[in-house]
Simulated scan of single mutants.
Amino acid sequence: MSDAMGSNQIMRPVVMGILNVTPDSFSDGGRYVDTQDAIRHGRDLFAQGAGIVDVGGESTRPGAQEVSETEELRRILPVVEALAEDGVVSIDTRKERVAKTALRAGATIVNDVSASLGATAAEFGAGWVAMHAQGVPETMQQSPHYADVVEEVYRFLQGCRIQAEKFGVRELYLDPGIGFGKTVDHNLALLRNLTRFLDLGTPILVGVSRKSFLASLTRLQQMAAPIEREEQSLAANIWALTHGASVVRVHEVSPVIEYLRLVEAMKMTEGS
């Protein structure tokens, strides 16, 4: 991967595969609570072309309740240890102890919805995904409000970049936090204005996979099960990748990889 503190333009698109080792994640909670099932799925994500597998032991869906550090570590540690032998692993956590333990076990990126673990990432020479969220998962969707969501998120992420430089973070990724304390209109405004965030000069990570606002905009409507939102997720990820995102965080890796391969093949044939 590129030096994330450099130019966003030099980084080739990366697909981050989601691995929820939780009983209550909004899309696939309970599917990979068994350690061996989780390891198999993580290896399958790598085989499909994921450049990063993101392991999470605590759901951050709207309304989710916090779990203890001990429980979170029990869920993620053997999975991180196993998958770190196969590729790049990120740890999806907002707890310092969990992040440090996962980094010692082989993870090399902290995916941080709290944007509070930059010093921890720097201490271990790890990458840091700093995400914007209004509020915490337990309450963030109750009444999100912004005067100007694009500018407020931009300023927050700008502050994260300053922090990363102060701490000496090796690789920084900035995430506008689609669905984290945002309404449908807020999410759409951020996606429409993704190129605004390129001014930060840092790779932008976007996570839209299977989120409910996608269903609310289409024939599926809000009641569709998350797993039924793959077509909408692919469309949103293509939008993100063509409007400045360097990393997309997804449940289904193969469709995005096939899109990227097709684009690359088309570029190679230009002018031939």
Results as ranks from 00 to 15, higher is better:
residue 257 I to L: 05
residue 260 L to G: 06
residue 266 M to N: 07
residue 258 E to V: 04
residue 203 P to R: 08
residue 254 S to H: 11
residue 238 I to D: 04
residue 192 R to T: 07
residue 253 V to N: 00
residue 260 L to A: 11
residue 264 E to Q: 15
residue 227 I to Y: 10
residue 200 L to S: 07
residue 210 R to E: 04
residue 243 H to S: 03
residue 246 S to H: 15
residue 206 V to G: 07
residue 245 A to P: 07
residue 201 G to M: 08
residue 178 I to K: 01
residue 194 L to Q: 12
residue 210 R to P: 03
residue 248 V to C: 12
residue 182 K to A: 01
residue 254 S to E: 14
residue 255 P to L: 01
residue 179 G to I: 03
residue 179 G to Y: 00
residue 257 I to P: 07
residue 192 R to D: 14
residue 213 F to T: 03
residue 267 K to W: 00
residue 240 A to D: 10
residue 266 M to Q: 06
residue 263 V to S: 06
residue 219 R to E: 11
residue 250 V to I: 08
residue 194 L to V: 10
residue 198 L to F: 05
residue 264 E to A: 15
residue 227 I to E: 15
residue 269 T to M: 13
residue 176 P to N: 07
residue 231 E to S: 08
residue 197 F to L: 09
residue 177 G to D: 01
residue 187 N to R: 05
residue 186 H to S: 05
residue 227 I to M: 04
residue 211 K to G: 01
residue 241 L to T: 11
residue 228 E to C: 03
residue 199 D to R: 14
residue 209 S to A: 14
residue 202 T to A: 03
residue 225 A to T: 06
residue 246 S to Q: 15
residue 182 K to C: 14
residue 191 L to R: 03
residue 189 A to P: 00
residue 204 I to P: 01
residue 198 L to Q: 07
residue 256 V to G: 08
residue 270 E to V: 03
residue 190 L to P: 04
residue 202 T to E: 12
residue 196 R to C: 06
residue 252 E to N: 14
residue 201 G to D: 10
residue 176 P to G: 13
residue 181 G to A: 14
residue 257 I to Q: 14
residue 256 V to Y: 00
residue 190 L to S: 12
residue 241 L to C: 09
residue 216 S to Y: 01
residue 177 G to W: 02
residue 192 R to F: 15
residue 240 A to W: 05
residue 245 A to I: 07
residue 199 D to L: 12
residue 212 S to K: 15
residue 177 G to A: 08
residue 202 T to R: 12
residue 181 G to C: 09
residue 203 P to V: 12
residue 189 A to N: 00
residue 210 R to L: 10
residue 235 A to S: 13
residue 267 K to F: 08
residue 231 E to I: 06
residue 197 F to R: 01
residue 240 A to Q: 05
residue 219 R to C: 03
residue 221 Q to V: 07
residue 214 L to K: 01
residue 249 R to Y: 06
residue 236 A to V: 01
residue 229 R to G: 05
residue 203 P to E: 09
residue 198 L to G: 02
residue 253 V to P: 08
residue 184 V to K: 12
residue 248 V to P: 09
residue 177 G to T: 06
residue 265 A to W: 09
residue 221 Q to F: 02
residue 230 E to F: 00
residue 232 Q to G: 12
residue 247 V to T: 09
residue 228 E to R: 13
residue 193 N to V: 08
residue 268 M to N: 11
residue 267 K to I: 06
residue 226 P to E: 15
residue 217 L to M: 15
residue 198 L to Y: 00
residue 197 F to M: 03
residue 247 V to H: 02
residue 252 E to V: 03
residue 270 E to C: 02
residue 183 T to R: 13
residue 192 R to E: 15
residue 203 P to T: 11
residue 251 H to S: 10
residue 197 F to D: 05
residue 181 G to Y: 01
residue 198 L to C: 11
residue 201 G to Y: 07
residue 244 G to I: 08
residue 225 A to Q: 14
residue 248 V to Q: 10
residue 251 H to F: 12
residue 216 S to M: 12
residue 212 S to R: 15
residue 212 S to P: 00
residue 255 P to N: 13
residue 206 V to S: 05
residue 215 A to D: 14
residue 246 S to M: 04
residue 268 M to K: 13
residue 202 T to S: 13
residue 188 L to S: 08
residue 206 V to Q: 02
residue 252 E to Y: 02
residue 239 W to D: 11
residue 246 S to L: 06
residue 212 S to C: 02
residue 224 A to F: 02
residue 254 S to V: 02
residue 268 M to Q: 13
residue 245 A to L: 09
residue 223 M to T: 15
